[in-house]
Design a protein around this nucleic acid. Sequence first.
DNA 1: TATTGTTATACTCTATAACTATA
DNA 2: TATAGTTATAGAGTATAACAATA
Lengths: 158, 158
Amino acid sequence: MTPATILDRLLLISDLFERDMARAFAGTQLSAARMGVLWIVHHSGPVTQQALAQGLDVSARNISALVDALVTAEYIRRSPHPTDRRAVLIELTDAGHTLMTATAAEHAELSAHLLEAVDPDDRAALERGIDAMTDRLTQLLAAEAHSADRPGAGRSES
Amino acid sequence: MTPATILDRLLLISDLFERDMARAFAGTQLSAARMGVLWIVHHSGPVTQQALAQGLDVSARNISALVDALVTAEYIRRSPHPTDRRAVLIELTDAGHTLMTATAAEHAELSAHLLEAVDPDDRAALERGIDAMTDRLTQLLAAEAHSADRPGAGRSES
DNA sequence: TATTGTTATACTCTATAACTATA
DNA sequence: TATAGTTATAGAGTATAACAATA
Protein backbone atom coordinates (compact mmCIF):
# COMPACT_ATOMS: atom_id res chain seq x y z
CA MET A 1 0.00 0.00 0.00
CA THR A 2 2.71 2.46 0.99
CA PRO A 3 4.74 3.50 -2.05
CA ALA A 4 8.22 2.08 -2.09
CA THR A 5 10.31 5.01 -3.29
CA ILE A 6 10.52 8.68 -2.50
CA LEU A 7 9.48 9.51 -6.06
CA ASP A 8 6.38 7.35 -5.79
CA ARG A 9 5.47 9.10 -2.55
CA LEU A 10 5.83 12.53 -4.10
CA LEU A 11 3.87 11.58 -7.20
CA LEU A 12 1.11 10.19 -5.01
CA ILE A 13 0.78 13.38 -3.00
CA SER A 14 0.83 15.41 -6.24
CA ASP A 15 -2.02 13.29 -7.52
CA LEU A 16 -3.99 13.86 -4.33
CA PHE A 17 -3.56 17.63 -4.69
CA GLU A 18 -4.77 17.45 -8.28
CA ARG A 19 -7.86 15.50 -7.30
CA ASP A 20 -8.56 17.85 -4.41
CA MET A 21 -8.48 20.87 -6.69
CA ALA A 22 -10.50 19.17 -9.41
CA ARG A 23 -13.23 18.34 -6.92
CA ALA A 24 -13.17 21.76 -5.31
CA PHE A 25 -13.68 23.40 -8.72
CA ALA A 26 -16.31 20.95 -10.04
CA GLY A 27 -19.59 22.70 -10.73
CA THR A 28 -18.02 26.16 -10.55
CA GLN A 29 -16.66 28.41 -13.25
CA LEU A 30 -13.18 27.95 -11.83
CA SER A 31 -10.36 25.55 -12.71
CA ALA A 32 -6.72 25.11 -11.82
CA ALA A 33 -5.64 27.10 -14.89
CA ARG A 34 -8.07 29.94 -14.19
CA MET A 35 -7.08 29.98 -10.52
CA GLY A 36 -3.47 30.38 -11.68
CA VAL A 37 -4.45 33.62 -13.37
CA LEU A 38 -6.32 34.85 -10.30
CA TRP A 39 -3.41 33.92 -8.05
CA ILE A 40 -1.00 36.08 -10.01
CA VAL A 41 -3.38 39.04 -10.17
CA HIS A 42 -4.08 38.66 -6.45
CA HIS A 43 -0.40 38.75 -5.57
CA SER A 44 0.90 41.18 -8.19
CA GLY A 45 -1.96 43.61 -8.64
CA PRO A 46 -3.05 44.70 -12.12
CA VAL A 47 -0.99 43.00 -14.84
CA THR A 48 -0.99 42.79 -18.63
CA GLN A 49 -1.94 39.59 -20.39
CA GLN A 50 1.66 39.34 -21.59
CA ALA A 51 2.82 39.27 -17.98
CA LEU A 52 0.30 36.53 -17.23
CA ALA A 53 1.49 34.50 -20.21
CA GLN A 54 5.07 34.74 -19.00
CA GLY A 55 4.19 34.12 -15.36
CA LEU A 56 2.23 30.96 -16.17
CA ASP A 57 4.45 29.93 -19.09
CA VAL A 58 1.57 29.50 -21.52
CA SER A 59 0.74 31.12 -24.86
CA ALA A 60 -0.86 34.54 -25.23
CA ARG A 61 -3.74 32.83 -27.01
CA ASN A 62 -4.37 30.68 -23.98
CA ILE A 63 -4.36 33.69 -21.68
CA SER A 64 -6.98 35.37 -23.87
CA ALA A 65 -9.28 32.38 -23.36
CA LEU A 66 -8.66 32.13 -19.62
CA VAL A 67 -9.22 35.85 -19.17
CA ASP A 68 -12.40 35.71 -21.27
CA ALA A 69 -13.79 33.01 -18.97
CA LEU A 70 -12.83 34.90 -15.81
CA VAL A 71 -14.34 38.13 -17.13
CA THR A 72 -17.56 36.27 -17.90
CA ALA A 73 -17.49 34.84 -14.36
CA GLU A 74 -16.99 38.44 -13.14
CA TYR A 75 -13.87 37.67 -11.10
CA ILE A 76 -11.69 40.05 -13.14
CA ARG A 77 -12.08 42.96 -15.55
CA ARG A 78 -10.03 44.34 -18.43
CA SER A 79 -9.00 47.97 -17.98
CA PRO A 80 -7.13 50.16 -20.45
CA HIS A 81 -3.39 50.38 -19.90
CA PRO A 82 -2.54 53.96 -18.90
CA THR A 83 0.41 54.35 -21.27
CA ASP A 84 0.26 51.51 -23.83
CA ARG A 85 -2.92 51.46 -25.86
CA ARG A 86 -2.16 47.99 -27.26
CA ALA A 87 -2.26 46.44 -23.81
CA VAL A 88 -4.94 45.87 -21.19
CA LEU A 89 -4.60 45.61 -17.44
CA ILE A 90 -6.25 42.68 -15.67
CA GLU A 91 -7.69 43.58 -12.27
CA LEU A 92 -9.73 41.69 -9.70
CA THR A 93 -13.37 42.69 -9.26
CA ASP A 94 -14.80 42.87 -5.76
CA ALA A 95 -16.06 39.31 -6.18
CA GLY A 96 -12.61 38.27 -7.34
CA HIS A 97 -10.97 39.89 -4.37
CA THR A 98 -13.39 38.21 -1.98
CA LEU A 99 -12.77 34.86 -3.66
CA MET A 100 -9.00 35.15 -3.48
CA THR A 101 -9.01 36.28 0.13
CA ALA A 102 -11.01 33.18 1.05
CA THR A 103 -8.85 30.98 -1.15
CA ALA A 104 -5.65 32.24 0.44
CA ALA A 105 -7.10 31.52 3.88
CA GLU A 106 -8.06 27.96 2.89
CA HIS A 107 -4.61 27.50 1.40
CA ALA A 108 -2.95 28.53 4.67
CA GLU A 109 -5.35 26.36 6.65
CA LEU A 110 -4.59 23.28 4.53
CA SER A 111 -0.88 23.90 4.89
CA ALA A 112 -1.24 24.10 8.67
CA HIS A 113 -3.29 20.89 8.76
CA LEU A 114 -0.67 19.04 6.78
CA LEU A 115 2.18 20.24 8.95
CA GLU A 116 0.26 19.32 12.10
CA ALA A 117 0.12 15.74 10.86
CA VAL A 118 3.93 15.57 10.99
CA ASP A 119 5.81 14.72 14.19
CA PRO A 120 7.29 18.03 15.43
CA ASP A 121 10.68 16.35 15.66
CA ASP A 122 10.52 15.52 11.95
CA ARG A 123 9.44 18.88 10.62
CA ALA A 124 12.82 20.54 10.18
CA ALA A 125 14.26 17.50 8.41
CA LEU A 126 11.15 17.27 6.26
CA GLU A 127 11.49 20.85 5.03
CA ARG A 128 15.22 20.48 4.46
CA GLY A 129 14.63 17.26 2.54
CA ILE A 130 11.93 18.70 0.32
CA ASP A 131 14.01 21.77 -0.43
CA ALA A 132 17.03 19.62 -1.25
CA MET A 133 14.98 17.51 -3.67
CA THR A 134 13.44 20.59 -5.22
CA ASP A 135 16.88 22.06 -5.82
CA ARG A 136 18.12 18.83 -7.33
CA LEU A 137 15.08 18.51 -9.56
CA THR A 138 15.51 22.08 -10.74
CA GLN A 139 19.12 21.32 -11.61
CA LEU A 140 18.16 18.21 -13.54
CA LEU A 141 15.50 20.08 -15.48
CA ALA A 142 17.88 22.90 -16.34
CA ALA A 143 20.46 20.38 -17.52
CA GLU A 144 17.90 18.61 -19.72
CA ALA A 145 16.59 21.88 -21.12
CA HIS A 146 20.15 22.92 -21.92
CA SER A 147 20.96 19.72 -23.79
CA ALA A 148 17.64 19.88 -25.63
CA ASP A 149 18.53 23.37 -26.86
CA ARG A 150 21.56 22.12 -28.72
CA PRO A 151 21.03 21.99 -32.48
CA GLY A 152 20.07 18.55 -33.65
CA ALA A 153 18.78 17.47 -30.27
CA GLY A 154 15.30 18.88 -30.68
CA ARG A 155 13.19 21.93 -31.24
CA SER A 156 14.20 25.16 -29.58
CA GLU A 157 11.66 27.22 -27.72
CA SER A 158 11.51 30.95 -27.38
CA MET B 1 12.58 32.94 -3.01
CA THR B 2 12.13 29.72 -1.08
CA PRO B 3 8.43 29.04 -0.56
CA ALA B 4 7.24 29.88 2.92
CA THR B 5 4.87 27.03 3.72
CA ILE B 6 4.98 23.27 3.42
CA LEU B 7 2.06 23.38 1.00
CA ASP B 8 3.86 25.84 -1.25
CA ARG B 9 6.90 23.58 -1.26
CA LEU B 10 4.87 20.53 -2.20
CA LEU B 11 2.97 22.38 -4.92
CA LEU B 12 6.24 23.65 -6.35
CA ILE B 13 7.73 20.19 -6.59
CA SER B 14 4.49 18.90 -8.13
CA ASP B 15 4.73 21.61 -10.75
CA LEU B 16 8.33 20.67 -11.50
CA PHE B 17 7.32 17.04 -12.04
CA GLU B 18 4.55 18.14 -14.39
CA ARG B 19 6.91 20.26 -16.44
CA ASP B 20 9.47 17.48 -16.53
CA MET B 21 6.94 15.02 -17.91
CA ALA B 22 5.49 17.51 -20.36
CA ARG B 23 8.93 18.20 -21.78
CA ALA B 24 9.89 14.54 -21.87
CA PHE B 25 6.77 13.75 -23.92
CA ALA B 26 6.95 16.75 -26.25
CA GLY B 27 7.34 15.68 -29.86
CA THR B 28 6.42 12.07 -29.09
CA GLN B 29 3.12 10.24 -29.29
CA LEU B 30 3.12 9.92 -25.50
CA SER B 31 1.53 12.01 -22.75
CA ALA B 32 0.99 11.74 -19.01
CA ALA B 33 -2.47 10.24 -19.53
CA ARG B 34 -1.25 7.70 -22.09
CA MET B 35 1.70 6.80 -19.88
CA GLY B 36 -0.80 6.12 -17.09
CA VAL B 37 -2.37 3.45 -19.27
CA LEU B 38 0.99 1.92 -20.13
CA TRP B 39 2.04 1.97 -16.48
CA ILE B 40 -0.95 -0.10 -15.43
CA VAL B 41 -0.55 -2.58 -18.25
CA HIS B 42 3.16 -2.85 -17.50
CA HIS B 43 2.52 -3.64 -13.84
CA SER B 44 -0.69 -5.66 -14.08
CA GLY B 45 -0.28 -7.53 -17.35
CA PRO B 46 -3.18 -7.76 -19.82
CA VAL B 47 -6.23 -5.88 -18.56
CA THR B 48 -9.66 -4.93 -19.85
CA GLN B 49 -10.49 -1.34 -20.70
CA GLN B 50 -12.95 -1.38 -17.81
CA ALA B 51 -10.11 -2.17 -15.43
CA LEU B 52 -8.10 0.69 -16.90
CA ALA B 53 -11.03 3.09 -16.46
CA GLN B 54 -11.34 2.11 -12.81
CA GLY B 55 -7.60 2.12 -12.19
CA LEU B 56 -7.18 5.61 -13.62
CA ASP B 57 -10.57 6.89 -12.43
CA VAL B 58 -11.63 8.17 -15.83
CA SER B 59 -14.56 7.37 -18.12
CA ALA B 60 -14.71 4.35 -20.39
CA ARG B 61 -15.00 6.76 -23.30
CA ASN B 62 -11.73 8.35 -22.36
CA ILE B 63 -10.00 4.98 -22.15
CA SER B 64 -11.20 4.15 -25.67
CA ALA B 65 -9.48 7.27 -26.97
CA LEU B 66 -6.27 6.72 -25.00
CA VAL B 67 -6.11 3.09 -26.13
CA ASP B 68 -6.77 4.11 -29.73
CA ALA B 69 -3.80 6.47 -29.64
CA LEU B 70 -1.52 3.89 -28.02
CA VAL B 71 -2.56 1.23 -30.53
CA THR B 72 -1.77 3.66 -33.36
CA ALA B 73 1.59 4.34 -31.75
CA GLU B 74 2.07 0.54 -31.58
CA TYR B 75 2.82 0.43 -27.88
CA ILE B 76 -0.19 -1.80 -27.09
CA ARG B 77 -2.60 -4.10 -28.91
CA ARG B 78 -6.20 -5.15 -28.35
CA SER B 79 -6.64 -8.93 -28.00
CA PRO B 80 -9.90 -10.84 -27.63
CA HIS B 81 -10.85 -11.70 -24.08
CA PRO B 82 -10.73 -15.50 -23.68
CA THR B 83 -14.08 -15.85 -21.95
CA ASP B 84 -16.01 -12.59 -22.44
CA ARG B 85 -16.59 -11.68 -26.06
CA ARG B 86 -17.73 -8.16 -25.15
CA ALA B 87 -14.35 -7.32 -23.64
CA VAL B 88 -10.85 -6.86 -25.00
CA LEU B 89 -7.53 -7.39 -23.31
CA ILE B 90 -4.92 -4.65 -23.58
CA GLU B 91 -1.38 -5.98 -23.89
CA LEU B 92 2.00 -4.35 -24.44
CA THR B 93 3.66 -4.87 -27.80
CA ASP B 94 7.39 -5.53 -27.91
CA ALA B 95 7.94 -1.82 -28.47
CA GLY B 96 5.68 -1.05 -25.51
CA HIS B 97 7.55 -3.46 -23.30
CA THR B 98 10.88 -1.96 -24.32
CA LEU B 99 9.55 1.54 -23.64
CA MET B 100 8.20 0.67 -20.22
CA THR B 101 11.34 -1.16 -19.16
CA ALA B 102 13.36 1.94 -20.00
CA THR B 103 10.80 4.22 -18.36
CA ALA B 104 10.82 2.19 -15.15
CA ALA B 105 14.62 2.38 -15.09
CA GLU B 106 14.57 6.17 -15.55
CA HIS B 107 11.92 6.42 -12.86
CA ALA B 108 14.10 4.50 -10.40
CA GLU B 109 17.13 6.53 -11.39
CA LEU B 110 15.33 9.83 -10.80
CA SER B 111 14.09 8.62 -7.44
CA ALA B 112 17.64 7.68 -6.45
CA HIS B 113 18.99 11.06 -7.59
CA LEU B 114 16.39 12.88 -5.52
CA LEU B 115 17.07 10.84 -2.42
CA GLU B 116 20.82 11.34 -2.81
CA ALA B 117 20.24 15.09 -2.63
CA VAL B 118 18.88 14.67 0.92
CA ASP B 119 21.13 14.54 3.96
CA PRO B 120 21.19 10.86 5.04
CA ASP B 121 20.32 11.95 8.58
CA ASP B 122 17.13 13.58 7.26
CA ARG B 123 15.87 10.75 5.08
CA ALA B 124 13.90 8.77 7.62
CA ALA B 125 12.14 11.87 8.93
CA LEU B 126 11.46 13.00 5.37
CA GLU B 127 9.72 9.75 4.47
CA ARG B 128 7.78 9.71 7.74
CA GLY B 129 6.71 13.30 7.19
CA ILE B 130 5.58 12.78 3.63
CA ASP B 131 3.64 9.68 4.58
CA ALA B 132 2.00 11.52 7.48
CA MET B 133 0.93 14.37 5.20
CA THR B 134 -0.31 11.91 2.58
CA ASP B 135 -2.43 10.14 5.17
CA ARG B 136 -3.83 13.42 6.44
CA LEU B 137 -4.59 14.63 2.95
CA THR B 138 -6.34 11.36 2.15
CA GLN B 139 -8.46 11.78 5.28
CA LEU B 140 -9.38 15.33 4.37
CA LEU B 141 -10.35 14.29 0.86
CA ALA B 142 -12.47 11.42 2.13
CA ALA B 143 -14.23 13.73 4.58
CA GLU B 144 -14.96 16.28 1.85
CA ALA B 145 -16.17 13.60 -0.55
CA HIS B 146 -18.47 12.28 2.14
CA SER B 147 -20.00 15.65 2.94
CA ALA B 148 -20.27 16.47 -0.76
CA ASP B 149 -22.36 13.33 -1.21
CA ARG B 150 -25.13 14.72 0.93
CA PRO B 151 -27.32 17.18 -0.88
CA GLY B 152 -27.42 20.47 0.96
CA ALA B 153 -24.51 19.65 3.23
CA GLY B 154 -21.16 21.41 3.08
CA ARG B 155 -20.10 24.49 1.22
CA SER B 156 -21.63 24.36 -2.20
CA GLU B 157 -21.32 27.20 -4.64
CA SER B 158 -23.89 26.88 -7.36
C1' DT C 1 10.09 46.48 -37.32
C1' DA C 2 8.53 44.71 -32.77
C1' DT C 3 4.89 43.95 -29.43
C1' DT C 4 -0.06 43.21 -27.54
C1' DG C 5 -3.93 40.92 -28.00
C1' DT C 6 -7.51 38.51 -30.99
C1' DT C 7 -9.25 35.36 -34.56
C1' DA C 8 -8.69 30.91 -36.88
C1' DT C 9 -7.59 26.26 -36.49
C1' DA C 10 -6.25 21.97 -34.37
C1' DC C 11 -4.99 18.46 -30.90
C1' DT C 12 -5.44 16.24 -26.22
C1' DC C 13 -7.99 15.11 -22.13
C1' DT C 14 -12.12 14.91 -20.10
C1' DA C 15 -17.33 14.08 -19.46
C1' DT C 16 -22.30 12.36 -20.37
C1' DA C 17 -25.58 10.01 -23.27
C1' DA C 18 -27.08 6.82 -26.70
C1' DC C 19 -26.05 2.68 -29.02
C1' DT C 20 -24.32 -2.34 -30.21
C1' DA C 21 -22.96 -6.68 -28.89
C1' DT C 22 -22.69 -9.84 -25.45
C1' DA C 23 -23.53 -11.81 -20.68
C1' DT D 1 -31.48 -6.40 -17.24
C1' DA D 2 -26.57 -5.45 -16.78
C1' DT D 3 -21.93 -4.89 -18.65
C1' DA D 4 -17.93 -3.79 -22.24
C1' DG D 5 -16.83 -0.90 -25.53
C1' DT D 6 -17.82 2.56 -29.38
C1' DT D 7 -20.01 6.58 -31.56
C1' DA D 8 -21.77 11.26 -30.92
C1' DT D 9 -21.29 15.49 -28.86
C1' DA D 10 -19.41 19.01 -25.85
C1' DG D 11 -16.19 21.82 -23.10
C1' DA D 12 -11.58 23.08 -21.22
C1' DG D 13 -6.65 23.68 -21.83
C1' DT D 14 -3.06 23.92 -24.82
C1' DA D 15 -0.40 25.20 -29.16
C1' DT D 16 0.99 27.68 -33.72
C1' DA D 17 -0.06 30.96 -37.33
C1' DA D 18 -2.06 35.00 -39.33
C1' DC D 19 -3.80 39.43 -38.38
C1' DA D 20 -4.93 44.26 -36.46
C1' DA D 21 -3.70 48.06 -33.72
C1' DT D 22 -0.21 50.35 -31.57
C1' DA D 23 4.63 51.29 -30.13
